[in-house]
Design a protein around this nucleic acid. Structure first.
Length: 259
DNA sequence: ATGGCGCAGCCACTGCGA
């Protein structure tokens, strides 16, 4: 089974790119973030024609998360309870024996901004909700844009950006508490010393210069880690291709023996 | 000249992303 997460930066603007990627990579389950579309305007027909069911939690203009699957999927949760005002940032579904969550953590703007404190509160609420979640105890994956560079290896300028947004101790501690629930950062676990970014700024030729961060993570339970044979970042689809403007994020893809 | 992006929407500017 092939499972992926991808912040598409608007599912409408990216639809042609997304369909080309689905056809090329043939993933079985995909966590999407930043749909930026009201639910009635989701491209359900195009996704179905491509062979994918789509469970989504969206709102106009901002945020929005979805889970695509080739198999039947059952919705377990749409929205983080108690954090609805922060936007549509969480959806959880069951696909066969596997539970899958797609998450879009608030950006935070800057460590001086009120949104940064709201980001930390949101992460604490997610952690508290997951602690009580039955679905996390079995074969489970939480995939998405966590908006945190987990360690210095995951950013192109660890000295210059030390303590700044995505790099602060408080953000990394919050991510650490999520991992403390029994989750594993699949990329880091399988590639302990490798530097692999998943986001590059649109500006300044950042992708070409490989100035980026690893913000997009697949966190798996122990049962999932045992079944993960490979995990890789699909940089090909961050490149500008004929007729397509890419997202500023690349897909992160995991290969699993089970399910 | 101090930016060399891209998205959606009460649409020609603004807010947001990271």
């Amino acid at each position: 089974m092939r499972l992926a997460t991808w912040n598409v930066n608007s599912i409408h603007a990216r639809l042609g790119h997304l369909l080309a990627w689905l056809a090329a990579r043939q993933p079985d389950v995909v966590c999407l973030q930043e749909l930026k579309v009201a639910p009635p305007r989701l491209p359900q027909a195009e996704l179905e024609a491509a062979g994918y069911r789509c469970l989504a939690h969206g709102e106009p203009r901002w945020n929005g998360v979805a889970i695509l699957s080739r198999r039947e999927a059952t919705l377990l949760q749409a929205g983080l309870p108690g954090a609805e005002a922060a936007g549509a940032r969480l959806i959880v579904a069951r696909v066969g024996e596997l539970s899958v969550g797609s998450v879009y953590v608030p950006n935070g703007k800057s460590i001086e901004h009120a949104d940064y404190q709201a980001k930390l509160v949101w992460l604490d609420r997610l952690c508290a909700w997951l602690r009580e979640a039955d679905w996390l105890r079995g074969a489970a994956v939480l995939g998405g844009d966590f908006n945190i560079a987990p360690a210095d290896l995951d950013t192109s300028d660890p000295a210059g950006l030390a303590g700044q947004l995505h790099h602060s101790e408080a953000e990394r501690a919050a991510l650490g508490r999520l991992l403390g629930l029994g989750l594993h950062d699949l990329f880091r676990t399988r590639h302990p010393g490798a530097q692999g970014f998943s986001w590059w700024d649109y500006r300044g030729g950042a992708f070409h210069r490989n100035q980026g961060m690893r913000l997009d993570l697949l966190l798996g339970s122990s049962a999932v880690l045992e079944q993960t044979s490979e995990i890789w970042i699909d940089r090909e689809f961050r490149k500008r291709r004929a007729g397509f403007i890419p997202s500023d994020h690349a897909p992160v893809v995991a290969e699993m023996r089970g399910w």
